[in-house]
Amino acid sequence: MELIRSYFEHFSEEQLAKFSALKPLYEYWNARINVISRKDMENFYVHHVLHSLAIVRFTSFFSGAKVLDVGTGGGFPGIPLAIALPEVEFHLVDSIGKKIKVVRAVAEALQLTNVMASQTRAETLKQQYNYVVSRAVTRLPIFSSWIKGKLEKNNPKGALPPAVLYLKGGDLEDELVPPVQPIEIVSLHSYFREAFFETKKLVVFRV
């Protein structure tokens, strides 16, 4: 866990133990239900865990915040974020049932009581959330249509305003168009030194 510890010195031993348990859990489930590219497992902590934790480098969310992870797949970025931010409530959704099965199994194994997982599409949800997170599910204008009306109008004073925090790489210029209202775009290479992050970005926006 030296990789995680090197960037997040404040994580407790309990949190680091949960991060350490992630790879064996995903190796077990990935052999049964393919949720991560097999060739990607050797880069599991950089490509999936650290990538997800870029959001924690940007903000920690406020205690009690409700966060929706849309198109979570096998649980990214939601599972690493839930380990990092135990006082935040995470709702992980995906339309593919076998992926949600893995998310639930991992959350249960790690005793992540702040994780709820649902097989559903974001468009059908009735709840509102303080934040929405996601990782390269689709183009930003399309994604915005999925989550329309899902953000709260206001957050507590001093907290990051209601926003989408979207992890994606490449040239995003033609995606930053209405209804996407960019707040900030962060190059992840400013957070992490690994070459993988040279083209990766965190796009923070409102709809």
Rank of each mutant, 00 (worst) to 15 (best):
G74C: 07
G75K: 07
F76H: 05
P77K: 10
P77N: 10
I79W: 01
P80N: 07
L81F: 06
L81A: 03
A82E: 03
I83D: 02
A84K: 03
A84Y: 05
L85Q: 11
P86V: 10
E87I: 00
E87F: 03
V88C: 03
E89Q: 15
F90S: 05
F90W: 05
H91L: 15
L92P: 02
V93M: 07
D94K: 09
D94Y: 11
S95T: 13
S95F: 10
I96Q: 12
I96W: 06
G97D: 15
K98G: 02
K98W: 04
K99A: 09
K99W: 10
K99E: 05
I100L: 09
I100Y: 07
K101W: 09
K101I: 06
R104L: 08
R104A: 11
A105N: 14
V106D: 04
V106P: 01
A107H: 03
A107F: 03
E108Q: 13
A109N: 11
L110F: 08
Q111C: 06
Q111F: 10
L112W: 08
L112I: 06
T113C: 03
N114T: 10
N114E: 05
V115Q: 04
V115F: 08
V115H: 04
V115C: 10
A117G: 04
S118C: 05
R121Y: 00
R121M: 09
E123I: 11
E123K: 12
T124M: 09
L125N: 06
L125C: 06
L125T: 02
K126M: 13
Q127M: 02
Q127A: 14
Q127W: 02
Q127F: 04
Q128T: 15
Q128W: 00
Q128P: 01
N130C: 09
N130R: 05
V132D: 02
V133S: 01
S134V: 00
R135L: 00
R135N: 01
R135S: 04
R135M: 05
A136F: 10
A136D: 06
V137M: 06
R139Y: 04
L140A: 04
L140N: 02
L140F: 00
I142W: 00
F143V: 01
S144T: 12
S145Q: 15
W146Y: 13
W146F: 14
W146R: 00
I147G: 07
I147M: 04
K148I: 00
K148P: 00
G149V: 09
G149T: 12
G149L: 04
K150G: 04
K150L: 14
L151N: 11
L151F: 11
E152V: 15
E152W: 05
K153W: 02
K153N: 12
N155H: 13
N155M: 12
K157L: 14
K157D: 13
K157S: 15
G158T: 14
G158P: 10
G158N: 14
A159R: 11
P161C: 13
P162E: 13
P162W: 12
A163I: 08
A163C: 15
A163M: 14
A163P: 08
A163T: 15
V164A: 11
V164S: 12
L167Q: 12
L167P: 06
K168I: 08
G169P: 07
G169Y: 08
G169D: 03
G170M: 06
D171V: 08
D171S: 03
L172F: 00
L172I: 14
L172W: 00
